[in-house]
């Protein structure tokens, strides 16, 4: 179960540099830890994060086991047009978690 908190300004002027923040709830299990039975806990991490602005990729990242639980990203982009900013986190099982935010550019 994943839950995300994203922050995109609702309004911006054309050409403004805007900050985008994305925080997702995820255990980021490294695969190196042992459980109470002594067996390794299977690796379960988000390994890819992609952000698109009206379909065009503006930021992406590969994630690795050394990244802590509940990964947080903060990055900037230029407000070019009104539309949709979409976020996609993909985990080791191939499951994707999606979030979107609308931005109005004047």
């Amino acid at each position: 179960m994943a839950r995300a908190l994203i922050n995109v300004p609702a309004k911006a002027k054309r050409g403004d540099i805007i900050e985008i923040k994305a925080l997702i709830s995820h255990p980021m299990e490294t695969g190196y830890r042992t459980g109470t039975d002594g067996a390794l806990v299977p690796r379960d991490i988000i390994n890819r994060f992609i952000c698109t602005y009206n379909g065009e990729e503006i930021f992406s990242a590969d994630l690795f086991p050394a990244i802590a639980a509940n990964p947080f990203f903060s990055f900037t982009t230029t407000a070019t047009e009104s539309g949709r900013i979409a976020f996609r986190w993909i985990d080791d099982r191939g499951q994707a978690y999606l979030e979107t935010a609308e931005i109005a550019v004047e």
Binding site: R3, L5, K21, L23, I24, N70
Partner: peptide
Amino acid sequence: DFSNPGMLWVAE
């Protein structure tokens, strides 16, 4: 509130 991971629990 957008970087505080505790807010994930608040939302839940």
